[in-house]
Design a protein around this nucleic acid. Sequence first.
RNA 1: GCGCCCUUAGCUCAGUCUGGAUAGAGCGGCUGACUACGGAUCAGCAGGUCGGGGGUUCGAAUCCUCCAGGGCGCACCA
Length: 650
Amino acid sequence: MQHRDDGTHHNPGTQDERGTQRDGQAAPYRYAAERVRDQIRAAVRDAVAACIAAGGLPEAAAQAPVTLEVPRERAHGDYSTNVAMVTARTVGLKPRDWAERIVSRIDTAGTFIDRVEVAGPGFINFYLRPQWLYGVLDDVLALGPRYGDTHVGQGRRVVVEFVSANPTGPLNVVNARHAALGDSLASLLAAAGYRVAREFYVNDAGNQFRMLALAMDTRLRELLGEPAELPEGAYPGEYVIDLARQFAAQHPDAVSARPPRPDRGRAGGAAESGGAGESGAGEGAGSGPVLAGDETWEAWLERIGRFAVERILEDQRKTLERFGVRYDRWARESEIRAAGLPGQVLQRLAERGHTYQRDGAVWLRTTAFGDDKDRVLVKRDGQFTYVLPDIAYHVDKLQRGFDLLINLLGQDHHGHHVRLKAGLEALGYDPDVLEVIYLQMVHLTRGGEAVRMSKRRGEFVSMGEFLDEVSTDAARYFFLMRSADTTMDFDVDLANLQTQENPVYYVQYAHARISGILRQAAEQGVEVPAAGAAGHGDLPAGAARPSGAEAVDLPPVDLSPIADPREFDLLRKLADLPDELAAAAEAREPHRLTHYAYDLASTFHQFYVHCRVLGEAPEVTRARLLLVRATQVALAKVLGILGVSAPERM
RNA sequence: GCGCCCUUAGCUCAGUCUGGAUAGAGCGGCUGACUACGGAUCAGCAGGUCGGGGGUUCGAAUCCUCCAGGGCGCACCA
């Protein structure tokens, strides 16, 4: 892991408070790692300036930012900068010579820098006195659950839209991956100082809705012994039969008063004759609404379709909740339409000259914005394609005040963002407000054997069935171990069977182990620091004590007993958390956190077997209890963002 | 044909955006460690032409280019 840092300020986030940090009213909090990096950068800058002054070197050499990174090899120091290599050409010196010159003028007095060396092609490596890491404990124990929060998001309002499955059936395993990633990304962004909302877009209108209603109609008639064929495109899933049965039981009057099914010839008359040449086998799907009819028939479809949608939606909502996912809003296409938004958007697009008529349809000139072909907004039969309400929904998000729209889409929808961005840009918005993350598929396997999932054939493993077999913790962790753009195999047996070697248990075990130590300490009457509620020692200069943390004055703990390399390793890992969270948030990559969590757990386990906490000399126990408590806070923090529980016992 | 994603250890995958020093982890395999806080742990070994070729660079898994293999799309469906 290589951390880059050029001095960007991170502040602990306060998701609940609005805008105070944005206005710069609260003093910026500098985490321990940032404080020490500030020291190093300042020392380097001063040294470069001194070299320039002494050697008549070009001033431009002082302009290059001093980027610091953590060398892969521990032997190469705690931090390293390539600034000499970057600016060697400017000053006209060989990188190594230039580096040597800089180093000769670095003043380490009053800093944690122990020694500085030039290495390799011209790296300047910094070796720190490990005591700089004591500051991490101040950070963690003062900030508690907010340790790791930053302000890289600057309070921007972001809405993360994910899953948004059609309300035409139960959720599947791919939806579960989307749910895990979307929910975790939202949490991650919140930790990074964004103001986050989670939304689920419900396509409860338009063609998909109609197909569901038609399937309902067919199943109802079957139940009544009336001959009825499943129209082309209608959903074959057996769950529709259940829904039809429910409807019949709850609304017998409506069923007995059902309108006759319009026959195709009568229904689509005008459209069919117009498109007769190409409609081929006569599905009619290409030329007009399937089984279009009069108002009574349409009202009937609306009623049974609505019934089905609400049941399915409720089922989806429960499944997601079981998975630990709650939305701030279930945005409905039907409401977008009812509010007249698509029409307004259409008008604005037309006024701006981005639409045109062709073949009886209204087109959006998306090719002007990078699409490979223009897209239909209003079909020949007057119906909207999905594109128009979708653009309207995104406009609605912007009008509700969001600065950033993040959508998670299946890879089978890739290219969709081009249409959406084109629509937004055509309306005068910056298309960059929309970020689309495509997730690859999930191949579910059981004992190495592929489990087929096909919605079309009505045979698939539902998310509910999946969760019957795999715990939410394991499922979410596994999904989040992979980056979004990799097709993943999910072996159900592995997630379950391997309880001993399962990474999620490994991480959770570290947390439970710590809890055990703290429990035992309490039983022995040893004072246990309460993270986030107690101020230990003094907060670093310039620190704003978080409003949520009450200042309880415990006697300051002497940290000097912390001297074992394993202890410093653990502190170093803890010190990384703010950077990890900020970087993962900016990259929109929650999966980085599973790797961090594993590393942290591993570092703790190594510490644990080498350093005993309880039963040591009192000052050692006190110091290590702080360290252990801080580790617990950090583990819980990361697991919380991942949506995985942090158990006290296992 | 065009577009997007992928190709890294036996398997599953990090690392690629933002180029750095000897390419990592888990699983699986092998060898060790329990008289104290939870052994769901720890220590160690074996395992690699980073799909292939060319290029840029002091330096390439990472950037450019060509090729091969796999996945997904290319609607007046969503």
